[in-house]
Each structure stands twice: as C-alpha cells, then as structure tokens.
Design a protein around this nucleic acid. Structure first.
Lengths: 143, 143
DNA sequence: TCCGTTGTAACTGATATGGTTACAACAGGA
DNA sequence: TCCTGTTGTAACCATATCAGTTACAACGGA
C-alpha cells in the first residue's frame, strides 16, 4: 500500500509541542519541530495546518509566533490524529463500475463496503488506545 | 492515504473463480474475470500472479489454460488476500532518521512501531472474519 | 503445426508524497 | 513607523505507486 509517514510526523509534532509546553515554553515554531523530526519546516506547517482544521492545535502569527495544543496531550488520541491527516478510505472499490450483468459484479460493491468499514473501524479503535501523552511519555522513557 | 483497489479486484477475481467452479467450469481465464471486473486482462493476471505466489490459486498454460482455486472459498479469508496483495506496512516511520539528540526524536520510533503493529493486527483480524465464500454468497444475494 | 492462454516487459497518465524555494501576510517590539 | 521573525501558501521537483494498455515470447493441448 502507499504507506506514508503523515501520521508519524503529526504524532511527533504533537508530542514535541507537548514536551515544549511541559518545559514552560509558550509556543513551538515549525523550525524547532522540523529540527526534531529532521525535515523541512514547510512540511511541518502543512501537517499542523490540517491538525488546526481538526481543532487539535492553534497557531499565532507575527513576531513570537508559533503553535500550541488546544487540548491536553492526554485527551488527544492517535485515532483523532489519523482522522485529521488521512482523509480518504483505506480501501478503494473498483476504479470502473464492474459488469452489472454478472452476479458477482452486480453485488460485490455493496458486500465489500461494510467489510471495509468494519476493518477501518477496527483500525481506528486500536489507534484510539494510544494518546499523544502516551507517545511523549514512552518516547522520553526510552534509553 | 493512497487508497488502492487491489484488495477489491483480488477478492472479486477469487469470488468469480469460485462461482465458475460451482457452475462446473474447469478453469477461469483472465479475460472472463476482466470482463466481470471491467478492466484489462493483464491487470487480472498480475494480481492473480501474486495470489499464486501466496498459494491461493494455481494457473495452467497452453491451450485450455486458466485459473483455479487451490482451496475452498470458505477457507480463504480476506486477511490472506490482503496479505498476498499488500506487502508493506500500513504506516511508515520517519523518511529521515529523527534528531537523536531530542528526547522525542530519540525514542518515538520504538514507541510507534508496536502501536502500528497493533493497529495493523486489528485490521487483519477484522478482515479475517470474511471469506471469499462470504463475498460470493452475499454478492449473489444482492437484488 | 495451430491456436488460445499465460507470463512479462515496457510504456503511459494520473495521483500522492516529501522536499525545497520563494514570498506575501501578519504582529509584536524597538 | 520600521524591523524582525514566523506563519500561510503557492509553485515546482523528484520519486513512487497504480491502473491501464500494447506487444510478444512461452507454453501446451488438439
């Protein structure tokens, strides 16, 4: 599958902002986060922009600007982060409408749809078991 | 996410072969399957080739050639089909090694790895609840 | 030998991703 | 009012995957 690192980078960014706030920092800049993730600040700003649309972070512009969490790290689950950065469904149905004259082609889409919904639901439920606070705490605990 | 239709097409092809065998057909050709899926026969042959490597189907060449299931439709779950056609992990870690001098960057990969493993395991477990026989039977039942 | 099918390479167009440069918009402070 | 640092965003590039297509060699039964 086209595995991407969007969830990884988003979780990393949120954990970093959480650590920054715990250390007394007012706001975190995309440059600081990018330095920890080891990527370009624009990549961070694009992803945090999607998290802002989802209501997970807020940004301040102008001098002394940066990013802050709108909620506690404990209350943000990876399922919400996934929802914010991965829009489409996990599995796609047929690119072209299957042959409706064939019994299989006629019925298969309405069969697969709930199967895919259930699989995606199971995925989200498992991601919901981990919070940004978990990621931050366990990351720091690694020696 | 880069949602693709590989699992959909593979499940459709297997269900079609299963129906063909139930109707007394010896082998199914990639052209017949492609006609039901509404795509090009080469797309079918490529995907069935991966299913053959996984041991789910076998092919015969020469005149009167085609494809057959190696097991009953009841014994083939969508989790196995997923395994056969989607190799890589669902979520990727960082494209570049994160900053090891940062506490978050140092520990986050070993934290996310088991989280992603668990999520993917939940996905597979849910897909395992549906078999090719289920897909075939329910598809035919759709009016 | 003929012929239908598989197996596979090669190419195309569309789309997603991560990275980069560039620059306007903004807002606090000197 | 101006300076400065940061966000917001457009534009572009390289790479990869996917679905589709054409072409043709390999195979094997009749």
């Amino acid at each position: 599958m086209g595995a991407n690192s969007r969830l990884t980078i988003a979780a990393h960014a949120l954990a970093w902002i959480g650590l920054n706030e715990r250390m007394g920092g007012e706001v975190a800049t995309s440059e600081q986060i990018a330095n920890s993730v080891n990527t370009n600040p624009v990549v961070i700003r694009r992803l945090l922009g999607e998290l802002r649309e989802a209501g997970l972070v807020e940004s301040r512009r102008g001098a002394g600007a940066g990013w802050r969490l709108t909620r506690t790290p404990e209350s943000i689950s990876l399922a919400e982060v996934y929802q914010a950065v991965e829009e489409g469904p996990l599995f796609a149905l047929h690119p072209a409408t299957p042959n409706q004259k064939c019994p299989v082609g006629h019925g298969i889409r309405s069969v697969l749809t709930p199967v895919y919904d259930g699989a995606e639901q199971a995925l989200r439920a498992q991601l919901a078991r981990t919070s940004v606070a978990d990621v931050l705490r366990e990351s720091i605990a690694v020696h």
